[in-house]
Design a binder for these strands. Structure first.
Lengths: 339, 339
DNA sequence: AAAGTTTTCGAAATCGATTTCTACCGTACC
DNA sequence: GGTACGGTAGAAATCGATTTCGAAAACTTT
């Protein structure tokens, strides 16, 4: 067993490269990492052999030495990945391809499991944490941690943490302004679950714009319910009964909007000619599958992920930050408001 | 700087525990890992101090030593996480809470990016790979790898790899048999994209059952199109025109089914009284949001993930396997077939 | 009490890469 | 030609945990 390369057909180590290139391990390391103190010819030789042997450095060893693992942990409650995946992709993008890898952990809404995942991630020496809540209400802070953490979508309840949340208020304004721009005057709002911060903020945004134009919502207020198509259908039927002259509906989510579209059709009201419909989330499969396509306010998950990545890098660089960053939304116009 | 505990307020290492407990590092290691050769009293002391100091072993160091990182890599093309997240959760479950952490990488359908992620994951010494395709067609094998890999949802095109795929054929049978059990005789099939293996397999399954009962599909064949609501609507209109007496429709996906339901309603056909509807995927938000709720064939993603986890463990234990494992589907009955 | 066993513990090597820090080389200058 | 110097390369320590192996301690046995 004097031949190490026979013992493990596994992977090529730096030692192998150094031996083949006829230099020492430190020299090989310096050459590969572009550090000075290596003659150009030597560096070339090392690079060439590394290439030839298909050398890939063991990230684990590097992590152990310099205390940086090049990984982030993302903890979420999002069972379907609707939020998590775009946010993850956005975060990854800031690092440049493959520089950072992300552990995705699903706590499934269970605090115990979350604690467990957290410990596991810290044991793996992640360089940062992204905590993705499934609703925009403030969630319990994880407290003081040995690595920077950023709360995305749901803000932390501790103002010493850094949170990134979508601008639901601004989204509401966007939706209302869009309808006003189209000349709509009699606007109703079928909202989501009142217990959700997001639902209330969206309502507030709509209200603000209407008030500024000396208008108010049909029925005098928004109608809160649940985040489902069924609620959209029911609410629409009642709404049209009491206010048959309405000409636009803002919906708390795309799912609600789907219900609204269904009900309007049953009631022989044309969209967008008789009634324009705007909703929130811009969940592609729902928004584009509808007839007509739904004009919807996009929460910009990927942008939130990118921001999270940037802030994590900044924090890793020692630049501590706290507070709540509000990420603007954007309106995606489709057939439900413009023919 | 003779006081190491001042230098880094960071984390508690095994050395710290050993020092405080008054034993050597190896002894502390043995005590914590439940290995023999340690007196009961000594072990107790070590365990107590570890607890008191909130010691969490550095997984990175352990990984470096014994060559096992306790991590898996999951590479997917799934932009929304519809497949990946349930599969990831299933895989994690097999390990027991937190024992395995999973790197989630989204290749976004880009081969270059996939290669990149793969290298990155191998550099991080993952113990296994789960490759999740976004369509059931066979995908290019990643070839010989230093760690076991399992292809989920989309099988590998190399028969020396191990793949786990949903039983689309069996799913088709389930759907057809369900309709026959309900006494339906005139069954049509509005399928998805013909270029997808899944679409064709589902059709074959339905055909098999009908043929076994000396029946055939309305129109003599399945109608292929695309995986969209719009296709469901269009196809239904044409179908009812040519075969107004149909009493059941099998849909290639929940999205198609949503279009079918819409169109049937426009045509004043009641579901399920006049026409029963069965679909595939059981995508909750679509299936339960519809009126009536969609009876749908569930692909059991989580079960596929669990199977993947088990097989990876087996492979890590040296038990090589190859071939394709077909994971059964299950029928979830809702209002679109039973009132 | 001496010899033989068993148990318990710790010194040292290991994993793979990085990072000093020192030894050496050749060149340049006086 | 000897000293000084910038530039290269390598020896050794390091990260934190594991593991082997030898030594010391604690018991038995005669």
């Amino acid at each position: 067993m004097t031949e190490p390369e026979l013992a493990r057909a596994k992977s090529v180590t730096l030692r192998d490269v150094a031996r083949v290139a006829g230099v020492s391990v430190p020299t090989a390391s310096k050459a590969l990492n572009g550090r000075e103190g290596v003659r150009a010819a030597t560096r070339q030789a090392v690079l060439a052999t590394a290439e030839r042997l298909a050398f890939h450095p063991n990230t684990t060893a590097r992590a152990l030495k310099n205390g940086r693992s090049g990984t982030w942990g993302l903890i979420t409650d999002d069972l379907e990945g609707r939020f998590s995946i775009p946010i993850l992709m956005g975060a990854e993008d800031t690092a440049g391809a493959g520089k950072m890898s992300v552990f995705l952990c699903d706590a499934r809404g269970d605090v115990i499991r979350e604690k467990h995942h957290l410990q596991s991630l810290l044991g793996r020496q992640v360089d940062g944490l992204i905590i993705v809540g499934s609703r925009t209400d403030a969630r319990a802070s994880l407290g003081e941690l040995p690595v920077p953490a950023i709360y995305v979508y749901a803000p932390s309840d501790a103002h010493t943490d850094l949170s990134i949340v979508p601008d639901n208020l601004g989204g509401g304004r966007l939706a209302a302004q869009h309808l006003l721009d189209l000349g709509r005057k009699r606007i109703a709002h079928i909202a989501g679950d009142r217990s959700y911060d997001a639902a209330r903020a969206r309502v507030t945004g709509v209200d603000e714009v209407l008030t500024a134009h000396n208008m108010e919502l049909m029925g005098g207020q928004a109608f809160y319910g649940v985040w489902s198509e069924a609620w959209g259908r029911n609410a629409t039927r009642r709404l049209v009964e009491s206010s048959p002259d309405l000409d636009a509906v803002v919906c708390g989510s795309d799912q609600i909007a789907r219900g609204v579209l269904d009900a309007l059709k049953d009631l022989n009201l044309r969209v967008p000619e008789d009634v324009a419909v705007v909703s929130f989330d811009n969940w592609e499969v729902f928004a584009t599958g509808a007839v007509p396509g739904l004009t919807s306010v996009d929460m910009n998950f990927e942008a939130m992920g990118r921001m999270a990545g940037e802030k994590l890098f900044a924090a890793m660089g020692g630049e501590e930050q706290q507070g709540t960053i509000i990420q603007p939304c954007r309106l995606v116009v489709r057939g439900s408001t413009c023919p």
